[in-house]
């Protein structure tokens, strides 16, 4: 069939051909991200998680407004006191106010969890992208390196570093956690990228001359954002547990800086465990609620970004 000859001149843009499909909605267009957000907000557990986590974050930010007491100030006259009007949750073994320590302690957990996640994200996205995008020898090299790191026993490594370093700062702590956890995220991102690499829209981007940088940032990462965010969130919960665990066995952020983990370590003493539940239940509950709400948020994000995984 011969094409019609009348199309040889520019089509007048003022009088376009009528659209073939009239039932297309004209406005109220939702981007995939907006659709995911809506699905997320419809998930009750995830929204509950957001509310609880926000409350904890606000309490840690505004801790100075909620209590006048200094969480690091010892009062040797008031050791292991029970609850009173001045010390709502009593005092610890060094006479520090438990309520103030509870509020300020959440800061460490959240900061460590969040910055370790961010750190992991940077390493994971960079290495995972390079590995998954370029493939071949670069990929093998990076993957063997992640295998190596994964094979290291985390606890032994962490305890060794902590034992060798005289003063443990929060930053160092974040590094130790992030440097041992990044391989998980790197592998996930690499896997996602490998599957994206063969998709036609990536070939199309290459065909219009898009740079590698552009393909990674405009085409790969937006399409991999679901797994990245979900895994980063769930990793944050894991990191908070690690921080608390190390603090609990006295290998975390040293005293007198308050953390939920080292507050819990007071409960190693059988006397406090029995007689002063107000000293260890609140920090335990703090860890529990923070991790639980982060996990709910992570699950909500997973369902929001990948509706097919929705089991409801």
């Amino acid at each position: 069939m011969q094409p019609s000859p009348q199309g040889a001149t520019e089509i007048d843009p003022v009088s376009p051909q009528p659209p073939l499909d009239q039932n297309a909605r004209s406005s109220n267009s939702k981007s995939p991200f907006q659709l995911a957000l809506r699905r997320f907000l419809n998930n009750k557990l995830a929204v509950l998680g957001i509310v609880v986590l926000l409350t904890i974050i606000l309490a840690s930010i505004f801790a100075p407004l909620l209590t006048d007491l200094d969480p690091t100030k010892s009062d040797l006259m008031k050791i292991e006191n029970g609850p009173s009007s001045e010390h709502i949750l009593g005092t610890d073994g060094s006479g520090r106010d438990n309520f103030a320590r509870l509020l300020y302690g959440s800061r460490i957990s959240l900061i460590v969890g969040f910055s370790a996640m961010l750190f992991t994200l940077i390493i994971g996205v960079t290495l995972g992208s390079i590995s998954g995008y370029y493939g071949g020898k670069v990929d093998s090299l990076i993957m063997r390196f992640t295998d190596l790191v994964l094979a290291l026993p985390f606890l032994v490594l962490a305890l060794t570093i902590i034992a060798l370093v005289p003063t443990i700062t929060t930053a160092l702590f974040v590094c130790i956690i992030a440097l041992t956890i990044w391989p998980n995220l790197t592998r996930i991102i690499r896997g996602t990228f490998l599957s994206l690499r063969e998709q036609e829209f990536v070939l199309g981007a290459r065909a219009i001359g898009a740079s590698d940088f552009r393909i990674i940032f405009r085409h790969f990462i937006p399409n991999a954002i679901g797994p990245i965010i979900v895994n980063a969130t769930l990793m944050m919960a894991q990191m908070i547990i690690i921080e608390s665990g190390l603090s609990f066995i006295g290998m975390g952020i040293p005293q007198p800086t308050p953390t939920w983990g080292n507050m819990l370590s007071e409960a190693q003493n059988i006397r406090i465990l029995r007689n002063h539940p107000e000293a260890w239940i609140p920090p335990g509950l703090g860890i529990f609620l923070t991790v639980l709400s982060i996990n709910f948020i992570g699950d909500g994000l997973r369902d929001a970004f990948d509706p097919k995984s929705n089991k409801r």
Binding site: S29, S31, P32, F33, Q199, E200, F201, L203, G204, A205, A207, I208, G209, R218, H219, P222, N223, I225
Partner: peptide, 20 residues
């Protein structure tokens, strides 16, 4: 690449779904 372009087979895989 300015002068040569390609239209792919699968209209569901050939457009990046995250872009308007």
């Amino acid at each position: 690449r300015r002068d040569m372009q390609i239209v792919f087979q699968d209209p569901f895989a050939s457009l990046n779904s995250k872009m308007s």
